[in-house]
Amino acid sequence: MPIHVASRRRSPASLAAAYPGAEIVDVTSRAPEPWVRLSPFFPHGGIPVPYSEGVTSQSVEGIWQALKVFGTADVDPSKLAVTGMRGLKRTVRRYGPVLGHRAGLTGTELLPYETARRLVYLPSYRWVLEHRAADPVERLRRAGETGDVVLLDYTTNGDVADPGSPLSHAALLRLWIEGRWPAGTATAG
């Protein structure tokens, strides 16, 4: 299945040269319908928050940001209710260093970065792929059966264990379509 991941910042000419004849699909929060639904910022609603029985979020990014704990700020449940694709980020500039992600809104355990990726981010994004974005995923799977597909994202890191750069949801989407979802991840909901 010829599915590739490339930076959204590359020029159309560069992408065309690198992937001649490929279908180029932006899957970021700036993408058109239906592809925007594959963005972790998209407000699908009803996404189970790991380690928080009965609590749901509008978006995957809302979960990731809500459970983030900083030097001067704990969890922020308000991020779970954000229905726009802006105003979700919580930054070190404002709150100090990230100490980890809380295992649930009221949990006592702080998860280190890679563990949080595996037990918070991946299960939440997988839940969306299974329950809220199955149609666009299937369209990409079919397109990949007949030709090259390039998924555009702002980052391209698909290695959950590599904390050197942000994790690419497009790379995760590719792994999902290829049946190679990262091992050692929990299931949301």
Rank of each mutant, 00 (worst) to 15 (best):
Q58F: 03
S59G: 12
S59L: 06
V60W: 02
V60E: 10
G62H: 10
G62C: 10
I63E: 03
W64Y: 12
W64P: 05
Q65H: 09
A66T: 05
A66I: 03
L67S: 08
L67N: 12
K68T: 02
K68S: 00
V69N: 09
F70L: 01
G71Q: 02
G71Y: 00
G71V: 00
T72G: 00
T72R: 01
A73P: 07
A73K: 15
V75F: 04
V75L: 03
D76G: 03
P77Q: 10
K79Y: 05
L80N: 02
A81G: 09
A81H: 13
T83L: 05
T83R: 15
G84M: 06
G84W: 04
R86M: 14
L88R: 06
R90Y: 09
V92H: 10
V92A: 15
V92K: 15
R93V: 07
R94V: 02
R94C: 00
R94L: 02
R94G: 01
Y95M: 00
Y95W: 12
G96Q: 00
G96K: 00
H101I: 11
H101P: 12
T106A: 15
E109P: 11
E109M: 14
P112T: 10
P112L: 10
E114V: 15
E114C: 11
T115M: 08
A116H: 10
R117N: 10
R118G: 07
R118N: 08
L119S: 13
L119I: 06
V120A: 12
V120W: 14
Y121Q: 14
L122F: 02
P123E: 03
S124K: 05
S124P: 02
R126P: 06
R126K: 11
W127T: 14
W127E: 11
V128R: 04
L129T: 03
E130D: 15
E130S: 09
H131C: 06
A133H: 07
A133I: 12
A133D: 09
A133W: 05
A134Y: 07
A134C: 09
D135L: 08
V137M: 06
R139H: 06
R139W: 06
R139E: 11
R139M: 14
L140E: 02
R142W: 05
R142V: 14
R142I: 05
R142H: 08
G144R: 06
E145C: 01
T146S: 14
T146P: 04
T146N: 06
T146H: 13
G147T: 01
D148E: 12
D148Y: 02
D148A: 13
V149Y: 03
V149E: 02
V149G: 06
V149W: 04
V150F: 01
V150P: 01
L152V: 08
L152N: 10
L152D: 03
